[in-house]
C-alpha cells in the first residue's frame, strides 16, 4: 500500500515536470536562436544554446524604426486602454452593484444578453467604419473600454464590501461618485489589479484590430508587426551596415523581436501570478 502511493508520487512529479519542461522549451529555443548567427542557424542544430554567438539580430531590430514605432504605439494603447477600461467598467460595476439603482433589472438583462448574442465580424466592421473609427488610433481604445465579463467580476467584488463603509460616507454627505472613487476603488485593489492585468495583456497582445480595422501603415501594433515578420519574413534592413546584415536572417531577426516583445509580459508576470488566482476565485465562486 505504502509502496504504491510512493510510485504514483514519483510518476506524478515526473509527468508534471515533463509538461513544464515542454512548455518552457520553445522559449529557450527561440532565445538561443536570437543570439545566434543567422546563416549558421539556417544549418540547423541550434536547439539549446547559441552556437555562433552574435548580437546582430538584436542590433537590426533595435535600429528598425518600424519596430520602435509599433512598440511605442502599443505601449500607448496598453496604458490608455487599460486605465480607460478600468474607469468605465468599474463605474458601471459600482452602479449595478447598488441595490438603490433604478431599473437595475433592465441594466442587468441588457448586459447579459450581449454575452450570448453577437452580430459577428462584418456587422461589427460596418459599425467601426460608419463611426469613423476605421484607420484611427481610437479604434484600439473605444471598443475595448467596456466589457460585460469584467464588469460582472468587479461588481461581485464590490458587493462583498461592507455596507457600513458606504453608510458612514453617506452620513458625511459624500455623493455616489465620491463613494465610488474614494471608498470602493481603494478597497478593490485586488480585483482592479486582476482585471487591469488581463486588460493590459489583452491590449499588448492584440494584432487583429490592426489587420481588420486599419490600413496597417502607421498604426501597426507590435504584434501585427511581429506577425508580418513571422508569416511574411518582412524585415527592414535598409541603411544598415552590410557586415551586420550578413550575420542575420529574417528568421533570427524575428526571434530577437519575439524575445523583446515577450519581455514586458515577463516583467508583469509575477504581479499577474500574485493577483490572478484571487480574481479567478472571485469570478468562479460568485460570478
Amino acid at each position: 500500500m505504502k509502496k504504491k502511493v510512493y510510485t504514483f508520487d514519483v510518476v506524478n512529479y515526473i509527468l508534471l515536470g515533463l509538461f513544464a519542461l515542454i512548455t518552457l522549451y520553445p522559449f529557450i529555443y527561440v532565445i538561443a536562436g536570437s543570439f545566434n548567427d543567422g546563416m549558421d542557424y539556417s544549418g540547423g542544430g541550434v536547439w539549446l544554446v547559441p552556437r555562433k554567438v552574435t548580437l546582430a539580430n538584436y542590433k537590426v531590430v533595435f535600429s528598425d524604426n518600424g519596430f520602435w514605432k509599433a512598440f511605442g504605439l502599443t505601449i500607448g494603447v496598453t496604458i490608455l486602454g487599460t486605465f480607460g477600461a478600468l474607469a468605465v467598467t468599474s463605474a458601471v460595476a459600482y452602479a449595478i452593484s447598488r441595490k438603490e439603482l433604478r431599473f437595475r433589472n433592465f441594466f442587468q438583462i441588457f448586459n447579459l444578453i450581449t454575452m450570448f448574442f453577437g452580430g459577428g465580424l462584418i456587422p461589427y466592421f460596418l459599425i467601426i467604419v460608419s463611426l469613423g473609427l476605421y484607420d484611427t488610433f481610437w479604434v484600439y481604445i473605444f471598443p475595448s473600454l467596456y466589457s460585460v465579463y469584467n464588469m460582472i467580476i468587479m461588481q461581485s467584488f464590490f458587493k462583498s464590501i461592507p455596507e457600513e463603509m458606504r453608510e458612514a460616507a453617506v452620513m458625511d454627505g459624500a455623493g455616489e461618485l465620491r463613494i465610488w472613487l474614494s471608498i470602493y476603488l481603494p478597497l478593490s485593489k485586488p480585483v482592479l489589479a486582476t482585471v487591469g492585468l488581463w486588460l493590459a495583456t489583452g491590449f499588448w497582445n492584440s494584432y487583429f484590430s490592426t489587420m481588420a480595422y486599419t490600413r496597417a501603415g502607421d498604426l501597426s501594433t507590435l504584434q501585427y508587426f511581429l506577425m508580418r515578420m513571422i508569416k511574411e519574413a518582412k524585415v527592414d534592413t535598409g541603411g544598415l551596415d552590410p557586415s551586420l546584415i550578413e550575420q542575420t536572417t529574417s528568421t533570427t531577426i524575428s526571434f530577437a523581436a519575439i524575445v523583446i516583445a515577450t519581455l514586458p509580459i515577463l516583467f508583469v508576470y509575477p504581479f499577474i501570478q500574485k493577483y490572478f488566482s484571487k480574481g479567478i476565485m472571485i469570478g468562479s465562486l460568485k460570478g
Partner: peptide, 14 residues
Amino acid sequence: FISWVIFGGLVIAL
C-alpha cells in the same frame, strides 16, 4: 499570457 502571434511563431520555428 503570450499572444498567439508569438506562440505560433515559436511553433513555426520548432
